[in-house]
């Protein structure tokens, strides 16, 4: 499940454990990933939480629903590391 977790976070959550190799892959991809809005990533065994800057998204995209845009970016990011939602 991918959802807006409050106004500054997008979380991917799963009931099955995210393997350590996958966690490492996500971490490494984020380190080299360039984004205008995603600022931080935090992982547990069951979720990946991205922190973003909602006001910056609102201003640059002229929207007051920034989570839709950021969720698309997060979905693409996760697909790039082989995590399907």
């Amino acid at each position: 499940m991918l959802f807006a977790n409050g106004d500054c976070y997008i979380t991917y959550s799963t009931d099955t454990k995210i393997e350590e190799t996958t966690q490492e892959r996500i971490k490494q991809h984020f380190e080299s990933y360039k984004s205008d809005f995603l600022t931080e990533i935090n992982m547990t065994n069951n979720d990946v939480t991205f922190t973003y800057l909602p006001i910056e998204v609102m201003v640059s995209h002229g929207t007051i629903e920034p989570s839709i845009i950021v969720m698309e970016e997060v979905q693409q990011f996760l697909e790039e590391v082989g995590v399907s939602i």
Binding site: T11, T44, D47, T49
Partner: peptide, 13 residues
């Protein structure tokens, strides 16, 4: 989200 699922303790959670 049951009691055996780990979650990130985000600010304001």
């Amino acid at each position: 989200n049951g009691h055996d699922i780990e979650q990130y303790g985000l600010r304001g959670g």
